[in-house]
């Protein structure tokens, strides 16, 4: 649909969040707890941390929880009773105050779970998610969205994008049908607006490389020793994958208590040795460098080919979280120049 342009006063925004809560939707927004900002369920806007550049973890757990039930089972004397997870019971969720990169992260994630074979559990959560993002007024040294086809005021992935025009006024772009249904239900809060040039309102983030150049370079770099050099300090902790908004790799594990049990899906990481280890002891990606190479190739070569989506949105979370100071933007710049 064509983007609808509106203006929302700060006071109206406060009312909007209250009304969304009152309508039974669960609203998640960045909340600062003891110095760490994460997406938490909020009742009102006062709880929200508007200043945070990027929450420590991405918003992906709203549709792809860290640990998620796939089914329950109960063992009886001579049978097993299996109960599928009830996907109709998932709540309507609003991701509020996501950054454009967070919103963009749902696109490759959705592509993983719904291309070819549809993962009904993921799709049900995604269908019930509405994303109301806020453009970035500031960025830090880890941000590189403009190098991966994103930007501090980019609308991709968001249902509504808010951009602060003044401390009391937000420019609201209504992007999707989901966004429009929120507008329609709260029409009185929104004022009409012309198209606003967001450039002076958002952060300046210098472009360091392009996805297309990385993609092209990777065609000949598989056997390069660049992977050994870059991964030398990688400790294989997997933090990069856990904080990444676009990483969708998972493990399936059973948990039992007496005769009852649950089959879970849990986050996993290509950085872990166990990820690919065969029972025989053979490991196709034995070295950390091979696993680092897989991470880069998956995001910048395989995903564009398999799902027509790059698997990185330039949020910089992996670099902020890395205990050994790996920096994906620097590594990608090196690849682009190499």
């Amino acid at each position: 649909m064509e983007i609808i342009n509106k203006i929302l006063d700060k006071s109206s925004l406060t009312v909007l969040v209250e009304k969304l809560n009152a309508s039974g939707k669960e609203v998640y927004a960045p909340v600062n707890k003891k110095g760490i900002t994460e997406f938490e369920k909020v009742a009102n806007l006062q709880e929200m941390d508007f200043d945070c550049i990027a929450t420590k973890q991405s918003a992906k757990s709203l549709v792809f929880p860290k640990v998620e039930k796939l089914m329950n089972f109960e063992k009886t004397f001579d049978d097993v009773i299996v109960k599928n997870v009830d996907i109709t019971a998932f709540p309507e969720v609003i991701a509020f105050g996501t950054r454009p990169c967070d919103a963009a992260g749902f696109i490759p994630l959705d592509a993983i779970f719904t291309t070819d074979n549809v993962d009904e559990i993921f799709k049900a959560r995604m269908d019930k998610l509405t994303i109301i993002s806020i453009s970035c007024k500031k960025a830090d040294d880890f941000c590189f969205c403009t190098s991966v086809n994103g930007g501090p005021g980019n609308t991709s992935g968001s249902d509504i994008l808010l951009t602060e025009m003044s401390p009391n006024e937000y420019y609201a772009e209504i992007i999707t049908e989901k966004g429009k249904s929120i507008l329609d239900a709260n029409a009185a809060l929104f004022k009409d607006s012309a198209v606003v040039d967001k450039t002076p309102l958002v952060a300046k983030i210098e472009q360091q490389f392009t996805e297309e150049v990385i993609n092209e370079k990777l065609k000949t770099l598989f056997e390069s020793d660049i992977w050994d050099t870059q991964a030398m300090r990688c400790v294989g902790c997997g933090a990069c994958a856990f904080v990444c908004p676009a990483c969708g790799c998972f493990d399936i594990q059973d948990e039992t208590k007496g005769k009852d049990g649950v089959r879970h899906r849990c986050w996993d990481s290509c950085g872990f040795k166990l990820f690919t280890l065969h029972t025989s002891g053979h490991n196709p990606r034995e070295k950390q460098a091979q696993r680092w190479r897989q991470r880069i190739y998956h995001k910048f070569s395989y995903q564009p080919e398999q799902q027509k989506q790059f698997g990185c949105v330039g949020c910089g979370r992996c670099s902020r979280a890395c205990p050994s100071d790996m920096n994906i933007a620097e590594h990608l710049t090196q690849i682009a120049k190499g």
Binding site: I112, F113, D116, G248, C249, F250, D268, C270, Q294, H298
Partner: peptide
């Protein structure tokens, strides 16, 4: 079926 990411 091509989602969990490890057999590529």
């Amino acid at each position: 079926f091509g989602k969990c990411g490890r057999c590529n």
